[in-house]
């Protein structure tokens, strides 16, 4: 989300590396589960096949991007000032934080407080959060959630 800090095709190499890492991890773990024979396959056989596919794809992606780097799409690197950088980073931090707060509070503090926290925290991710409006939404959403999910569908939530 921030300024491009690597060469145009570094992304391709990272993608290849990710696939290679996944493939190796899965293959090694699968062998530990037991491969068995073709006639009587064990637990690890199918995951091992998948891990091998991932390794092959990882190699293919790496080789392709190593040998034939994609032409630089726009040579001009985007110039982004600090305000913009902060703006792009904020939702990446606050949205996950809000969801995590919801998860942490749901079974202890209950649905109403968890919903309030999720709305308040994630709402701050907006560019220029209108705090008064956000607070109103944060107060009303839990009520709406209660009406729809608990009263309407009878879902078993701990309310508070």
């Amino acid at each position: 989300m921030t300024r491009r800090t690597f060469a145009p095709d570094a992304g391709g190499l990272i993608a290849g590396a990710i696939m290679l890492a996944i493939g190796i991890g899965v293959t090694v773990t699968s062998v530990g589960y037991g491969i068995g024979s073709l006639r009587r396959m064990d637990t690890g056989y199918f995951p091992m096949l998948l891990g091998s596919c991932a390794i092959l794809l990882g190699l293919a992606i790496t080789v392709r991007h190593g040998l034939f780097p994609a032409p630089a799409e726009d040579a001009e690197p985007e110039t982004i000032d600090w305000t913009e950088r902060w703006h792009r980073l904020r939702p990446m931090l606050l949205v996950p934080l809000g969801i995590a707060a919801f998860a942490a509070l749901l079974e202890s503090a209950g649905l109403l407080i968890a919903t309030f926290a999720l709305v308040m925290i994630s709402g701050l991710a907006a560019e220029k959060p209108n705090l008064k409006r956000l607070f109103m939404i944060a107060l009303l959403t839990p009520v709406g959630a209660w009406v729809v999910f608990v009263l309407g569908f009878g879902l078993p939530f701990k309310l508070y």
Binding site: G98, I99, F102, L106, L111, T115, L118, L134, A145
Partner: peptide, 30 residues
Amino acid sequence: YNALFPIILVLVSIGVYSINSSVVDIYLVL
């Protein structure tokens, strides 16, 4: 959108949780 997206996140979180009543599923969505 600034008013809408927090509510969407609430819908997502509640929806995911309601399937297995599992908090782990909320962390998974994240």
